[in-house]
Amino acid sequence: MPSPFLVGESMTGGYGAVDILHDCTIAVNRGEIAVIVGPNGAGKSTAMKAVFGMLPLRGGHVQLEGEEITRLSPQDRVAKGMALVPQTNNIFSSMTVEENLEMGAFLRRDDIRRTMEQVYDLFPILKEKRRQPAGELSGGQRQQVAVGRALMTQPKVLMLDEPTAGVSPIVMDELFDRIIEVSRTGISILMVEQNARQALNIADRGYVLVQGANRYTDSGEALLANPEVRKTFLGG
């Protein structure tokens, strides 16, 4: 197997004296969707943050396109082509939709209008509301703004922390469709999800974490078919 596009290998670390992650490995291949699932408190979001450089690591390393990035700050990783959509507070609520997108493209010095059109094509409702403060939009629309903002950096890999938290099932399906669409344009996607079943359905690769360590790692399809995974994590 060729070395994956983005990999956090054997990551161990935490915020204080106690480690949250124990020898945890997360990877995503170019243009694929990787999903991290697991029970509450399993360290799913923490693993994602570790890949993004927001958690001090005691062991392990992170590589992007074979390049060692373990020591880079989150901002530097943004410049390298990584984008993160946090779970909460992921928009500039006092700024308009369009300004949110512009801020996403802050580091870019080229013409951003084409990317903005692409985002509007992906989420047509945003074009309609582009002059409205993002804080006034509905929950699902705000998630679209958040994803749109991240896409404006023209990332090579998009990381989503529970993008469907708190949105209705219909909106959730819609969001997953969009995420598939994004991955088809060649952007790798790494995502943490509560709704394990639906997420594994669209995943090329799935990671089941328990207590900060890998429990099962396989293709999404295989994990869905695995009776043990079904019983313990997918509710039968």
């Binding site: 989150p74 901002q75 943004v78 410049a79 984008a83 993160l84 946090p86 507070n89 992921n90 928009i91 500039f92 609520s93 006092s94 700024m95 300004e99 801020m103 996403g104 802050f106 580091l107 903002r149 950096t153």
Partner: peptide, 14 residues
């Protein structure tokens, strides 16, 4: 304005 609104996200935007 972005920084004032949401510092963490501003950092994530570079």
């Amino acid at each position: 304005r972005a920084f004032s609104d949401n510092e963490d996200l501003a950092l994530l935007s570079g």
